[in-house]
Design a protein around this nucleic acid. Structure first.
Length: 572
RNA sequence: CGGGGUGUAGCGCAGCCUGGUUAGCGCGCGUGCCUUGGGAGCACGAGGCCGCCGGUUCGAAUCCGGCCACCCCGACCA
């Protein structure tokens, strides 16, 4: 392509409404433009890169045995009512009515549609397993879209759905997808981790998130510094630190603590560490109130408690419920003397030899409390949010935190949808059985943003070659001359006939402008064609990432670039 | 939805507090000259419903009210 003919409106200044680097750079490089909040148009360069991501995804999905389909964006409410999600999928689901007053929605995901399709067409175990995928625009009416393509309302997603006849098959499908995802993100040149994620009510370790490491990420990745355990914050398991001291002598004693309600206040008032305080949280669930005890420096992890109790809803109790459960006011709750309520305790409270707890009466705490002997605990467990430095649950390492961008999520659905929507088949014995499903998503447009978050410098984007809109940019510089434009044309044609996509900056611009734009666009290789080098029979090849220049004979440019591209792939 | 902020030329911004001739600046854009290895220089020029509606006033970009849009923080995220 000739740059003079391409719509590439580059900007010198950052757009005012962009916050993160990928957003700023994509707008400045003329890849995208915003239409309205969270909704973007892809310009030629942006779309080229997007298609490169799609192509990699497509190739690996096909290689893994999945088949590409294309499902509707507009979906009838009936399907969503059948799966039960019409009522539980909140305002994120954009709903509207057609001219016949029929309720519709824009697809934020396609479990319903795919399940409907497969239940109609697949009747026999002979047709299974089946894995169908599509690459398509999704719409989720996010409360607060932000960060450009990173969290848009409209975005491009690859979603795949597997259907299996047996648990073993479903597990196999899952592993195939996990392997395919590893290959896809590897080929995209991303530094990523596959982390264990909470799989909700389905259970098991059948959910992984693929996270691209980046400081601007919205998610926290917890990983072990000595083994390969990695999980998201919700899921991260913590190893119980064993207590190593004798039980306490003496009994709890009351202390007057006027108006001291928080752990911080209490630590200050008694001049003790928060590590000696037991925090008593009263939670409301649909199965009734529950009490959870934590060490003062720890925080509740709702997911862990939800999973342990097998409840769907958890919220902090209000003052009325607290009084009902403990008999005391908010701010002075403690475990001593609690009756008729389920008491959970995080393991870590056993590391306190002499604890301070609320006394369930105003302005009063107990001191000198033995966590093992002075009150009842029904269940000990891992209920707290991981923090940096906690012990790994799998080995002796410590947990580290990194920020990441979620670019992929795979999980086993089981029979959730097949049961609700009656997607069944006949097994070899002629028995009707529900299909076992899995679903596998990749945020294709988000991959592009994440790649830029991870690969840029002060001059602009540094595309990994597989995602670059063009692999090479040819930059003739200096006054117009036939020798330069002839040489440029030659290099351009050589590259294209060798199957390397090259962009020819044939604009009548000064060298500085061309160089700045080339850097901004992030094209991996630049071939500069100027008088001085050309007089010696050379052109220059510059690596966008390393900024290294080398002189190359025009005839050797194709083979040299080829070598560089290959070595790039090997270096990953 | 709560809190905060911003809407002035394609982009980035000043002007508004303290109302008053023709609304500015930088970049970009057009024409010409000149220049040509890291966003050159000079000259001339085009380009504005000052977010929208209403009010106050002799007079509103400026003051008041309402609405809309966008951004940030929070709650939310199969």
């Amino acid at each position: 392509m000739r740059l003079s003919k391409l719509l590439v409106p580059t900007l010198k200044e950052d757009p005012a409404d962009a916050e993160v680097i990928s957003h700023k750079l994509m707008v400045r490089a003329g890849m995208i433009r915003k239409l309205t909040a969270g909704i973007y148009s892809y310009l030629p360069l942006g779309y080229r890169s997007l298609r490169k991501v799609e192509q990699i995804v497509r190739e690996e999905m096909d290689a893994a045995g999945a088949q590409e389909v294309f499902l509707p964006v507009v979906q009838p409410s009936e399907l969503w009512k059948e799966s039960g999600r019409w009522d539980i999928y909140g305002k994120e689901l954009l709903r509207f009515k057609d001219r016949h007053e029929r309720e519709c929605c824009l697809g934020p995901t396609h479990e319903e549609v795919i399940t409907d399709l497969v239940r109609r067409e697949v009747r026999s175990y002979r047709d299974l397993p089946l894995n169908l995928y599509q690459i398509q625009t999704k719409f989720r009416d996010e409360i607060r879209p932000r960060f450009g393509l990173m969290r848009g309302r409209e975005f491009i997603m690859k979603d795949a759905y597997s259907f299996d006849a047996s648990e073993e098959g479903a597990e196999q499908s899952y592993i195939q997808m996990r392997d395919a995802y590893e290959k896809i993100f590897h080929r995209c040149g991303l530094v990523f981790r596959a982390v264990e994620a909470d799989s909700g009510p389905i259970g098991g370790s059948f959910s992984h998130e693929f996270m691209v490491l980046a400081d601007t990420g919205e998610d926290i990745i917890v990983s072990c510094d000595s083994c390969n355990y990695a999980a998201n914050l919700e899921k991260a398991e913590i190893r119980n630190e064993p207590a190593s001291f004798a039980s306490l002598s003496g009994n709890p004693q009351k202390a007057h603590t006027p108006n001291v309600k928080t752990v911080g206040d209490l630590a200050q008032f008694l001049n003790i560490s928060p590590l000696s305080i037991i925090k008593t949280l009263i939670l409301r669930t649909e199965k009734g109130p529950v009490v959870v005890l934590f060490r003062g420096d720890h925080e509740l992890n709702e997911i862990k408690v939800k999973n342990f109790l097998d409840v769907a809803e958890i919220e902090m109790a209000d003052a009325t419920l607290i009084e009902k459960v403990t008999g005391g006011p908010l701010g002075f709750s403690g475990p001593i003397g609690l009756q008729d309520v389920h008491v959970l305790a995080d393991h870590a409270i056993t590391t306190i030899q002499s604890a301070v707890v609320g006394a369930n009466e105003a302005d009063t705490h107990f001191i000198n409390v033995d966590p093992l002997n002075h009150f009842r605990v029904d269940d000990f467990g891992d209920f707290r949010a991981a923090s940096e430095g906690d012990l790994c649950s799998r080995c002796s390492g410590k947990l580290r935190f990194n920020k990441g961008i979620e670019v992929g999520h795979i999980f086993k659905l089981g029979v959730k949808y097949s049961k609700a929507m009656n997607a069944s088949f006949l097994d070899p014995e002629g028995k009707e059985t529900f299909m076992i499903m899995g679903c596998y998503g990749i945020g294709v447009s988000r991959v592009l943003a994440a790649a830029i978050e991870q690969n840029h410098d002060n001059d602009g984007i540094i595309f990994p070659p597989p995602l670059a809109p063009f692999t090479v940019i040819i930059t003739p510089v200096g006054a117009k001359s036939d020798t330069i434009s002839d040489a440029s044309q030659k290099v351009y044609e050589d590259l294209w006939s060798a199957g390397i996509d090259a962009l020819w900056d044939d604009r009548d611009e000064r060298p500085g402008v061309k160089f700045k734009d080339a850097d901004l666009l992030g094209i991996p290789f630049r071939v500069t064609i100027g008088q001085k080098a050309l007089a010696q029979g050379n052109v220059e090849l510059r690596d966008r990432k390393t900024k290294e220049n080398r002189l190359v004979k025009p005839d050797e440019i194709v083979s040299t670039i080829r070598t560089q591209i290959n070595s790039w792939g090997a270096g990953l």
